[in-house]
Design a protein around this nucleic acid. Structure first.
Lengths: 183, 183
DNA sequence: GTCTATACACAGATAGAC
DNA sequence: GTCTATCTGTGTATAGAC
């Protein structure tokens, strides 16, 4: 029976899941290792330390959004269709993301302690807002578009917190619907 | 030089401040004791354990909102004036609350691990929503009022996360202004 | 790449002197 | 009510065998 090689990405995904559901500081290296069927010492073969796991986790999610969601703004679709596609992908992501939004969670838990984390989180929300604003500018003024984008992201983030508490899917989906009604 | 008696409320306030800014699990009994000019063992004279501090912290903030903000719904004022007063007090609270909203923060960090915490947090948001909905029902249908209340709370909570990241006061204040524009 | 073993620091918590 | 002292568990991290 060959020893299974655990990929870095596999460990990262397990770590992300734990960070989201039980918090960063409340997740130990042993917890992460357990999830991967490893022993805690083995994780250090893949990552220098716990901080590096957190950092790569933030980058991983941020890049996922860049590649799979924010990139939609440049597709050859109508304003409404672009927004619809982004909202659908965003809703799908968060409906299935147990524990909510990693970047928002680490923003409250860790960012005041770690400037490197904070910079990534700030950038994530900035890029997200710019993505939506760019699309909305096709129908609104620059200022109105920015305000709508910002408000949507805030409302969605608040709604994700509520979704984690109450499990009410419809209320989460309403947020995207209301944005779509505006174009 | 007499030994200073530290009150339970004093310890609670220091603990709340630390929980908000650096997270619950990342705050040790020694951290809390330090803030109070005590040694960690002394905290146990006032609280059974760390979990109890978290629990009382949640109750303390929840009761503050009940007494000082949510109670405004029953004052003898016009719809607009009641809402205005609530928004002003809410904005004031969060503009000065370093680290954001304790209940929202613990919702993401701890609530999935602790049903007692979760129940208090769920109730806090429920009472908040009912408070706003009751006022809004003076001008809107029950369903519309509930939706507006829910949306405002979500947007504000998201905005508090952003405020912690960017320190942009105006964007936080916009949320309340937009609610007021609706009555 | 994973394991065993271990070092070391710090966590939460308790006992008892003052 | 606060202190000193201490227990015990667990945290992060490392060294070296397989």
């Amino acid at each position: 029976m060959a020893i299974k090689k655990t990929s870095k990405e596999e460990i990262l995904n397990k770590a992300i899941s734990l960070f989201k559901t039980q918090g960063f500081y409340n997740t130990s290296m042993a917890n992460i290792a357990d999830e991967c069927g490893l022993i805690k010492g083995s994780i250090y073969h893949h990552f220098k330390n716990k901080d590096e796991i957190g950092l790569e986790a933030l980058k991983y999610i941020s890049e996922y959004f860049d590649k799979n969601i924010f990139s939609i703004k440049d597709e050859a679709l109508s304003t409404k269709e672009k927004l619809k596609k982004i909202v659908a992908k965003t809703d799908e992501y968060f409906l299935n993301s147990n524990g909510g939004c990693l970047l928002a969670n680490l923003a409250t838990e860790v960012s005041s302690q770690n400037e490197e984390y904070k910079a990534i989180i700030v950038d994530y929300f900035k890029v997200w807002e710019e993505c939506l604003a760019k699309i909305l500018e096709e129908k609104y003024s620059k200022k109105e578009a920015e305000d709508l984008a910002y408000e949507y992201i805030c409302t969605l983030q608040g709604s994700i917190i509520m979704f984690n508490l109450t499990n009410n899917k419809n209320r989460l989906l309403e947020i995207g619907k209301k944005l779509l009604a505006k174009v």
